[in-house]
Design a protein around this nucleic acid. Structure first.
Lengths: 161, 161
DNA sequence: TTCATTCCGACCTCGTTGGTAGGATAAAGC
DNA sequence: GCTTTATCCTACCAACGAGGTCGGAATGAA
């Protein structure tokens, strides 16, 4: 599998936040219950989104999270990058900069003149990133609304309260 | 990271085989030494390629492997699929057929009406597959020859023999 | 003050990855 | 037919990351 549940849960979290509009912050607890996801785990995931300035938080009672920007201005490559850390096909291929531990890239004593596989991974990464760049959060929100993905199509409902 | 070393080593193996032409089979030992990869591990990897009819084997002394088809007719989506088993962005997304264990897809009681994230993963997978489909083994061989990726640009040399 | 919430770091469990070990089977060359 | 060189096959294993829990801070509204 390519992405972890961080990406899956994190994007769903953004979608839920987008449904709420930007008026009141939404608590993680409400989202966790609506989506059936573990709260403690969501907390760690939303921290990644906040660090990337995709969501804003308000602490204290009646606090929660809201989108930092309108959904149409949030592209999925930002979101997934924030959630997964790095989106690269191979460890010797981390955004053509970082270290290449583990897999020996090309051969023993080379500077960056590229493995035989470099062309392939470059294209694959390009295809993925391009697909994510052209997908906005607004599209996902619209898609999920039309296909009834949520339990509550229009408004989040807090189960216990 | 998206792909494992199976894909990396397996594609490199195909590239090395492609360099040899289709006359004589090349032993794994020669490839392992040239690429600096563990032989026993390569054995398991090449078994995947054989099962997918991408390489042919000849047993016994002076045996080895050769490509089952000309490199121009081997696309990378076949190769990577054979090596990685499945190429899907998310476990609830295994070629829209197989089981969805682990990650709860959408919500508790739905038939396949799709998560909020389905649109995104569909596009991402499409971008990757399209990139792999349009990349042939012949291109990689040519690329590696031009960029001197191999220790021995033209011919494999058996170290101990 | 109290309660609801974000924030933070340590911890834990399990499956997969990457690799090894050891042998069985098959063919070529003497 | 023996030996050598290969492919083939299955079991085993260590390390790591994924996915998640726990416990407790800090913070702000009522």
């Amino acid at each position: 599998m390519i992405f972890t549940t961080k990406a899956e849960y994190g994007v769903r979290l953004l979608v839920e936040l987008g449904r709420q509009g930007s008026d009141n912050p939404v608590s993680l607890k409400a989202i966790a219950e609506a989506e059936g996801l573990p709260l403690a785990y969501l907390e760690r995931i939303v921290a990644l989104l906040k660090k990337a300035d995709l969501v804003e938080s308000q602490r204290g009672a009646h606090g929660g999270y809201r989108l930092a920007r309108p959904p149409a201005e949030i592209t999925m490559d930002e979101a997934v990058l924030a959630l997964e850390g790095v989106v690269a096909p191979m460890s010797c291929f981390v955004d053509d900069s970082v270290e290449r531990k583990g897999v020996l890239c090309s051969h023993h004593e080379d500077a960056g003149h590229g493995c035989a596989t470099k062309l392939l991974w470059t294209r694959v990464q390009g295809g993925m990133v391009e697909a994510m760049k052209r997908t906005t959060l607004a599209e996902l929100i619209d898609f999920s609304a039309r296909h009834g993905s949520g339990v509550f199509p229009n408004q989040l409902v807090t189960i216990n309260g």
